[in-house]
């Protein structure tokens, strides 16, 4: 127990012996971790948004009024066979007109006037399971316009495409910034521990003279690095969870159409990832620093 006690107390003393440097590195680690948490959350949010939008991707095929029902059903069967399609609904001319009338009944500013017969086409409404196939799928069907069955293809794949692009850019850009921050945090920890090592060089010399193993000499410093990491993680996570409520509220007001909520499971994953990165950076930086000293 005394050995463990020695290592722990040496680590704590090391931290408080130079509080300015220790707090500065804790602050840097906190910033790095905040960025990391922000990156993780944004990434998760965008993925959820893409998921929601993907499930809403629809392509409508207007059917030529002269097409036979058998031809339409054959087309429907063919579309259903495509693996990217999750569902196809056949909306007849009568159903289309009824929908329009229903809308008109509900909205007073919308008046249907002078309708002779039924000008609306029948349609196939296609729901896709994979949004990334939307463009290919739309293009294939568009090639059949004028063939006697399909009169027009209505799709809007740009939204999903753009969202996917944003996700990619954010991922790459975020990773690059994160890598830089990680490097800075590591550098600061290496320096903090170097100062701690310097402050205790007499003690280290004696430890080595009386036969302490390198591992024993190293541990207090590695723990000190992990202490800096842990403190940084605690501060960063406190900020993240304190801000989570208001920010989520604002985001939900802003994106009413996207019912994204990151539940307790994600909160746990986030906390674990942040703490994990913090400990790795702390221990890694300290190890680099002590190794350099012991190798002298």
């Amino acid at each position: 127990m005394r050995r463990v006690g020695y290592v722990l107390s040496a680590a704590g003393q090391g931290f408080w012996r130079n509080p300015v440097m220790s707090l500065a590195s804790t602050f840097t680690v906190t910033l790095m971790l905040l960025l990391f948490a922000f990156f993780l959350t944004t990434d998760r949010g965008l993925q959820a948004a893409v998921g929601v939008l993907e499930s809403k991707v629809e392509i409508a095929l207007f059917i030529d009024d002269n097409a036979k029902v058998s031809e339409v059903l054959a087309l429907k069967a063919r579309i259903e066979a495509d693996p990217a399609v999750s569902r196809v609904d056949y909306v007849t001319k009568d159903q289309a007109l009824k929908r329009l009338q229903d809308i008109a009944d509900r909205r007073k500013d919308f008046v249907l006037a002078n309708i002779d017969g039924n000008p609306l086409p029948a349609s196939l409404e296609v729901k896709l399971s994979d949004a990334r196939q939307a463009k290919r799928f739309g293009d294939e069907l568009r090639a059949e316009i004028g063939g006697g069955v399909i009169a027009d293809v209505i799709d809007n794949p740009q939204v999903v495409d753009q969202l996917l692009t944003i996700t990619r850019v954010l991922s790459v850009g975020g990773l690059a910034i994160l890598a830089m921050m990680l490097f800075v945090a590591l550098f600061v920890i290496v320096n903090t521990i170097r100062i701690a090592v310097h402050a205790r060089r007499d003690e280290i010399e004696i430890m080595q003279l009386v036969g302490a193993s390198d591992a024993f000499v190293r541990w207090p410093f590695i723990l000190e690095g992990m202490l800096v990491g842990t403190l940084g993680a605690v501060v960063a996570l406190s900020i993240v969870f304190a801000a989570a409520g208001p920010v989520t509220g604002a985001m939900l007001d802003f994106l009413v159409t996207l019912p994204i909520s990151l539940g307790p499971e994600f909160a746990f994953q986030l906390a674990a990832s942040v703490l994990g990165v913090a400990l790795l950076v702390g221990a890694g930086g300290a190890t680099l620093s002590v190794r350099a000293h012991l190798a002298k």
Binding site: M1, R2, R3, Y6, I206, M207, V210, G211, A212, S213, F216, V217
Partner: peptide, 14 residues
């Protein structure tokens, strides 16, 4: 005692 503790000895022996 430092010489004993840092070479891994503990407790009564120290």
């Amino acid at each position: 005692a430092f010489a004993l503790i840092v070479t891994g000895h503990e407790g009564r022996l120290v």
